[in-house]
Design a protein around this nucleic acid. Structure first.
Length: 273
DNA sequence: CCATGTACCTGAAGGC
DNA sequence: TGCCTTCAGGTACATG
């Protein structure tokens, strides 16, 4: 569900609410949700920073770290008072002042990891798509070395982190690149177009506090507003606003993929199946 | 290494 | 109304 813009929206709100708070415990509700991979005690630790890498939220504590991934339907709810009214609560982070962070997650895919060092989880995650580390130069270098198709490449989280199914399709549309295009065949010029498209799409989505399809809500329970800018996502059967072609949907990289057949053409010799 | 399928889960939506 | 199938903002893992 949430991709980088939704996670960043949650991170910012979380930061304003739980920074410098003292953790008293984490209460597991659904056992798989909370994964304790560090034997040091959580009790008494202070929340130092609320950071993010790709779709991971990183709570750096005095000695250890809590790393949260919302996966498809995860949602965080912060309350000063205990509140039993919500269904689907899978874990609760309790603070010493009596407030708590509730992890709500209908599909139970989300996770909270307690680790001694953030790298224990994040070692396999590539540079953040809105971070300084991810430059056009590094993008071009890894693109040319990959033999994946560009959609799978952008979704992998290994080369760039934060893009999911929506923003990958929106970025490829904006750049005029077909999702089956081989990463290595993207020219230096096209790579720059794609780089700028990704930054533009993600920055705008952060500005509008993410996109809400059905489940996503921020910490206040509010929906995002970015969905009104979708050009291809969920627009199959409707005309492209740029060229008028009908947006199509098919499966690429095992995911539903929306394409404008007029704006996103495949290279010669590359075929959809 | 890469593409594809399956598993993990639940609920909403569409077809009949 | 009800039953059945398909699909969903993600990722890990197994199989060709």
């Amino acid at each position: 569900m949430p991709e980088l813009p939704e996670v960043e929206t949650v991170r910012r709100e979380l930061q304003s609410m739980i920074i410098a708070k003292e953790v008293s415990s984490v209460q597991p509700v659904w056992m798989k949700t909370f994964q304790n991979q560090c034997h040091q005690t959580l009790r008494g630790q202070i929340v130092k920073t609320v950071a993010r890498l790709g779709k991971y939220i990183v709570l750096e504590l005095s000695e250890t770290a809590l790393i949260i991934h919302l996966r498809m339907t995860g949602q965080l709810i912060y309350r000063n008072q205990p509140h039993p009214e919500h269904d689907y609560i899978r874990a609760i982070v309790h603070f010493a002042d009596g407030s708590a962070l509730y992890f709500k997650d209908i599909r139970k895919f989300g996770r909270i990891y307690h680790v001694c060092h953030p790298e224990d989880i994040l070692y396999k995650v590539g540079p953040d798509a809105l971070g300084e580390e991810w430059s056009l130069t590094t993008f071009r270098n890894v693109l040319n070395k990959s033999s994946m198709n560009i959609k799978a490449f952008l979704l992998s989280q290994r080369y760039i982190s934060g893009l999911g199914n929506i923003y990958t399709d929106e970025s490829l549309y904006r750049a005029g690149i077909h999702p089956k295009e081989a990463a290595s065949r993207i020219t230096a010029e096209k790579a720059e177009t794609l780089y700028e498209a990704i930054r533009f799409i993600l920055n705008r989505a952060v500005k509008y506090m993410g996109s809400t399809i059905s489940d996503y809500r921020d910490l206040n329970g509010d929906s995002g507003q970015n969905q009104k800018f979708f050009e291809v996502y969920k627009r199959e059967g409707q005309p492209c606003r740029r060229c008028g072609s009908i947006i199509i949907k098919n499966i690429i990289a095992s995911r539903s993929t929306r394409i404008c057949p007029g704006c996103q053409t495949e290279s010669i010799g590359v075929h959809a199946s």
